Amino acid sequence: MVQQVEAVYPESDGQPMADNTEQFAWIVKIKENLEILFASPADIFIAGDLFWYPVKGNPNIKQAPDTMVVFGRPKGKRSSYLQWDEDNIPPQVVFEILSPGNTLKEMTKKLQFYQRYGVEEYYIYDPAKNDLNGLLSSGDSFEVIEEMNGWVSPRLGIRFQITSDTLEIFSSTGQKFLSPVEIDQLREQECQAKEAALQEKEAALQELEKERDRYQELLAKLKQKGIDADNL
Results as ranks from 00 to 15, higher is better:
93 V>E: 14
160 F>I: 10
20 N>M: 07
219 L>D: 11
136 L>Y: 05
230 D>V: 06
107 M>F: 01
195 E>C: 00
25 A>N: 14
20 N>Q: 10
133 N>V: 00
115 Q>T: 15
176 K>C: 09
135 L>R: 13
187 R>Q: 15
52 W>E: 02
23 Q>V: 01
79 S>Y: 07
52 W>F: 12
4 Q>S: 03
115 Q>D: 02
151 W>I: 00
143 E>Y: 00
65 P>E: 12
38 F>P: 05
106 E>Q: 12
1 M>T: 11
50 L>H: 09
85 D>C: 00
136 L>T: 05
209 E>K: 15
216 Q>I: 09
216 Q>S: 08
178 L>N: 03
196 A>V: 06
183 I>R: 15
63 Q>M: 08
67 T>I: 03
155 R>L: 14
89 I>Q: 07
214 R>C: 06
72 G>R: 04
57 G>Y: 07
9 Y>W: 06
139 G>R: 00
48 G>F: 03
76 G>Q: 11
212 R>C: 06
91 P>T: 03
17 M>L: 10
214 R>I: 04
101 G>Q: 12
135 L>Y: 15
9 Y>V: 05
75 K>L: 04
130 N>S: 09
82 L>E: 15
111 L>T: 14
23 Q>T: 10
190 E>S: 10
36 I>D: 14
54 P>N: 08
139 G>V: 02
166 T>H: 15
86 E>Y: 02
206 Q>L: 10
44 I>N: 06
123 Y>C: 04
200 E>N: 12
35 E>Y: 05
27 I>N: 15
96 E>P: 02
61 I>G: 08
2 V>E: 14
196 A>R: 13
38 F>E: 11
221 K>G: 02
167 L>G: 11
27 I>H: 09
122 Y>F: 13
25 A>G: 09
21 T>V: 08
67 T>E: 09
100 P>A: 04
103 T>W: 04
151 W>E: 05
67 T>A: 15
201 K>V: 01
138 S>E: 14
111 L>Y: 14
3 Q>R: 08
78 R>H: 12
119 V>H: 07
108 T>P: 01
88 N>C: 05
113 F>D: 10
130 N>A: 07
110 K>I: 04
144 V>D: 06
230 D>E: 15
229 A>T: 08
